[in-house]
């Protein structure tokens, strides 16, 4: 009985508050800054690295992970919300519309993730007849293509045949014959396509002669000739050609210049406009002069 009581008392004696050597050392270790940093940073990183290496070290696991990723990706991409069902083209003429459908061949329905809109836009914009294009996916799974077409403003007879150019000189399309677009002015000559804006200015200035103008000829890639019917030509200077053409028109108004039998009106020298008469006119002129002077040789 006494023995039991003693042991019982021992058990209920107040606990020793002192930490054991082991727990004391452990606590000190945990308070060491380097060790704490290691625990907080190094250990999780190391564990994650080891785990990752162990899993990814196996080729089967890698494949399974890649497969799973593609599966998830596909399941998201092929949701009906992301499917594109048809293409709508606005602002394009029927020919351009056909061209666009030809160069952007898409098998609908298609996931919008598989569409490279920027690439598509660049392809469409590369068409000669297209000034700019805008491609977007509209609500309801519609691939919307908004096209602004180039407006042909001149006909250019170049080395490859007759072509249409817009007002910046960019090719719009080919023509089989000039007669297809008689409403547009004609350009020709080497380098004519590079000076289309200037040519348009000249056409605007030559409006009073419009019925007679057959076209503009680029000479030596630097200046223009205005070709008129009846094989007449106006040679324009390199600089201020519009002014020169206006002077010709003024002369025409005053002296009815164009109705006369001229071959060439040379305006290349601003200070000295020159005309070349046709051969019959020259002989006629000489004859008249002979009469006036009383020359009796003839």
């Amino acid at each position: 009985m006494r023995q039991m009581k003693a042991s019982h008392r021992e058990n209920t004696s107040p606990r020793d508050p002192a930490p054991s050597r082991l727990s004391y050392r452990y606590q000190r270790l945990l308070l060491t800054p380097l060790f704490r940093t290691f625990l907080r940073v190094g250990l999780p990183m190391g564990a994650a690295f080891t785990l990752g290496m162990a899993v990814l070290g196996n080729a089967d696991n890698r494949d399974a992970i890649a497969l799973r990723i593609t599966e998830i990706r596909n399941s998201i991409e092929e949701r009906p919300e992301f499917m594109v069902k048809l293409m709508a083209i606005d602002g394009a003429s029927p020919e351009v519309n056909g061209d666009i459908r030809e160069i952007v061949p898409i098998d609908f329905p298609l996931s919008s993730f598989d569409l490279d809109l920027e690439e598509m836009r660049l392809t469409i914009a590369e068409l000669d007849a297209v000034a700019s294009a805008e491609v977007r996916i509209r609500a309801g799974g519609v691939l919307q293509i908004d096209v602004i077409e180039r407006i042909p403003s001149v006909v250019w007879r170049g080395p490859q045949g007759v072509e249409l150019l817009d007002n910046t000189g960019h090719r719009v399309g080919a023509l089989i014959a000039r007669a297809e677009r008689p409403d547009l002015p004609l350009l020709t000559g080497e380098g004519a396509e590079l000076a289309v804006p200037e040519a348009l200015d000249l056409f605007a200035a030559a409006e009073p002669l419009a019925s007679r103008v057959r076209g503009l000829v680029r000479m030596g890639e630097r200046r223009w000739d205005v070709a008129l019917d009846r094989n007449q030509r106006i040679l324009l200077p390199e600089e201020n050609p519009v002014e020169a053409i206006e002077r010709v028109i003024a002369l025409d108004h005053v002296q009815d210049l164009m109705a006369r039998d001229l071959v060439v009106i040379d305006m290349r020298n601003q200070n000295r406009p020159t005309v070349r008469l046709a051969e019959t006119a020259v002989t006629e002129l000489r004859r008249i002069r002979g009469q006036v002077l009383g020359d009796t040789t003839q």
Partner: peptide, 14 residues
């Protein structure tokens, strides 16, 4: 040990 450990714990430094 008891005293040092408790003081360390309060200071949170070794």
């Amino acid at each position: 040990r008891t005293a040092v450990q408790a003081a360390q714990k309060m200071a949170n430094v070794r």
